[in-house]
Nucleic acid binder design. Sequence first.
DNA 1: TTATATTAACTAATGATATTAGTTTTATCA
DNA 2: TGATAAAACTAATATCATTAGTTAATATAA
Lengths: 199, 199
Amino acid sequence: MSPRNGLDLHTVLQAAAEMADSQGLDEITLASLAQKLDIKSPSLYNHVNGLPGLRKKLAVYGLDQLLDVMTRAAVGQSGAAAVHAISEAYISFARTHPGLYDATLRAPDAADTEIQKVGGDIVDLAVRVLHAYDLKGDAAIHVVRGLRSLLHGFASLEQRGGFGLLLDLDVSFRLLIDTFLAGIEAMKQNSETIAKPEL
Amino acid sequence: MSPRNGLDLHTVLQAAAEMADSQGLDEITLASLAQKLDIKSPSLYNHVNGLPGLRKKLAVYGLDQLLDVMTRAAVGQSGAAAVHAISEAYISFARTHPGLYDATLRAPDAADTEIQKVGGDIVDLAVRVLHAYDLKGDAAIHVVRGLRSLLHGFASLEQRGGFGLLLDLDVSFRLLIDTFLAGIEAMKQNSETIAKPEL
DNA sequence: TTATATTAACTAATGATATTAGTTTTATCA
DNA sequence: TGATAAAACTAATATCATTAGTTAATATAA
């Protein structure tokens, strides 16, 4: 295929992801990555458009994996169980791949087409999973925004050690999802009985 | 006071915060900050322990302000209104000071005493505000963790352009808080009638 | 008022980094 | 076998953070 058998992009991203997970996203420099790959740093420009380009590709690489684990967690599940399943998959990914997860959210340009694409796929998955809650009109989008906020917020704070260690984090997490789902049900009741609550 | 009338730490942090808000946290370099302050970059070491020291002090500076606006929003409020008040204050701070807000969460060392202190004060405020919900035992801590996750997640995703622009973000946000509060009420009902739901 | 001590500024130097330009090597394909 | 294309390389530059050592200014003590 290629006129020369060097590294391929996947190898580069895999190495970068490993570095990010073990040492933190900010420790990835072209110099350190090149050293890990046994090449000189300018050679990386054959695979990636400088440091910003690497960060962007790493973000897409991470989002692809996140979508994958969430999708697989969702199959065969429905209703509350499905929401829990994708949520656990999300948080588990963030825990197992802290640096890569970080990369998905610190992309140089969030408006990038490729990133929007995968991000949209994840949102679509969430919409499908929440379909069982039979949300009318805009409500589905609002609820997906809420679920994303909660998942990302929990993952991010946990990663940064923002929570004390007094209480089991898994309990907090499951309770948070349950509370959110109970809230959706309760709000639905309200909107059926009363026209407009107070919002 | 001082044997020489140079800059003081507050001026340095104020300038850094302005830079962070207008250009992003990562654009703060000792070189660029020094230029803004009309000094040479090594002079900054008289005020701050290098770049990591600057980032840490900026984090504390931001957390102090965040605690302040949240505290002031809470006075005279109670129950759901109080939760909404501190939540709006939180999100408003993140919107008005995107770079400084970022700094509060990307401190070099989250375990730092000073950061833990202010962070703890914010948690205490949230606990007091949620006191009206009469949560028993560990529940209060779990709920505060949940609220923080919501707030940070929403603020962070909004800042990174993670949400589409189809729907009003303020509506999503208020709905999210309402859903969470409705969930707390619903969960409370359950735990009163049933011994252990399924969790 | 004057001298001293303290502090904040400075210059100079070093090492690491990203990035660009231009060159060499090597595998594939005609 | 030879041309091509891709991926490595070397060399060079600019920007940083950081350290060491120096100079200047000011509050306080004499």
